[in-house]
Write a protein that binds this DNA or RNA. Sequence first.
DNA 1: TCCTGTTTGTGAAACTGTTCACAAGTGGAA
DNA 2: TTCCACTTGTGAACAGTTTCACAAACAGGA
Lengths: 212, 212
Amino acid sequence: MNSFTNRIPDAAVRRFSLYLRYLEDFERSGIRNVASGVLAERGGTTAAQVRKDLSFLGSFGKRGLGYSVAELTGVLRGVLGLDSVWRVALLGAGRIGTALFRYEPFRARGFHITTVIDNDPGKIGTRLGDVTIRGEHELESALQDDRTDLVIVAVPAAVAQALVDRVVAAGIRAVLNYAPTQLRLPGDVALRNVSMMVELESLSHALARLRR
Amino acid sequence: MNSFTNRIPDAAVRRFSLYLRYLEDFERSGIRNVASGVLAERGGTTAAQVRKDLSFLGSFGKRGLGYSVAELTGVLRGVLGLDSVWRVALLGAGRIGTALFRYEPFRARGFHITTVIDNDPGKIGTRLGDVTIRGEHELESALQDDRTDLVIVAVPAAVAQALVDRVVAAGIRAVLNYAPTQLRLPGDVALRNVSMMVELESLSHALARLRR
DNA sequence: TCCTGTTTGTGAAACTGTTCACAAGTGGAA
DNA sequence: TTCCACTTGTGAACAGTTTCACAAACAGGA
């Protein structure tokens, strides 16, 4: 009975992404209904967790039956903002930036990389896929012209903060950061960090403990 | 006064990685002591958080002065298991795998990618940097021969689980997963997932809320 | 219609992580 | 030596998240 008016816990939102992925698998397999326990088993969590998560969105499961795959898929797409196209700018066309650019599932989910910025003179003017790489000096105009919603940062740590300050000043409200540095930005800008070093080191911590 | 015998919260361990990064910057700048507030400001957290985190490791700050950069660096390296070399196998030499392989900071931190596995016949036998790519059928022998500590999964979701089952059976106890699927594995195997879709979708959720 | 087996939705309890607030050290100046 | 400005370490309060447990709803069969 918990409705849209309330804020949804961040931990739950992240699981929604996973649930949606599994529901799409089920949909492809022609499965029409799915119980919380099935979704839980697939996602490495518990049935109670799944039900609690979904209860933040309202209540549209059928007792005794489970959830309609089609309906739940639709609701999750809506909540995750996947019912519209998001225009994405990629800052940095190095190895990581290029790998991200070519990652197909982005486009399938409605994330269109329409802008690529790099400061290497050898790259400016060349194409990455169907996008022409532009120089850093064009950042603001590119973000504006392309009506960018969201920025992915894949530049060296040393230049990331300065670039992001400009991005925020240009009105962008969502940043996905791959640079190995903690960006500081206003509270009303959504930021997510992805760091392979942090994950790796948390693993080596676990391993080191095991060894003792 | 909290000593090594206790388990350290996962959230704290992940912040240790960040603290260490900043401490290394400070060390390079010749700064010898650092207060919790300074570390906090750099890492986008609070002074109390920093002190609480560090208290899990013992107590070696000096009241009125802060922490010795050199000492703290050493302690964090130890806790994160960075005082030895870890031998890493990379499964999947596609775009993401290749980008990971070439990511220099790994090696600097003591993570040596000694094994690369791919099932593309066109790639088997070719080299990636100084490592020869081997076929999937050699997985077990490669892990054994190279005395692998840790495995990075960068293969398509469809084949990830089967491959990881073999990896676990071969005795590996730490897995870093880039495949967009939730791997199921025994409780005594440490697993970390890195998913750009989850992060992106959590951003688009935030944006979609903003729009309402 | 009634019974049975299944599954949801949700308060309450348990747990985990974060923030607060302050006594207790510390170095340096007077 | 005494004082002062500063900073740690840590219980306690608080906030957020997960798990538990069970009444209520439903489908299908007898």
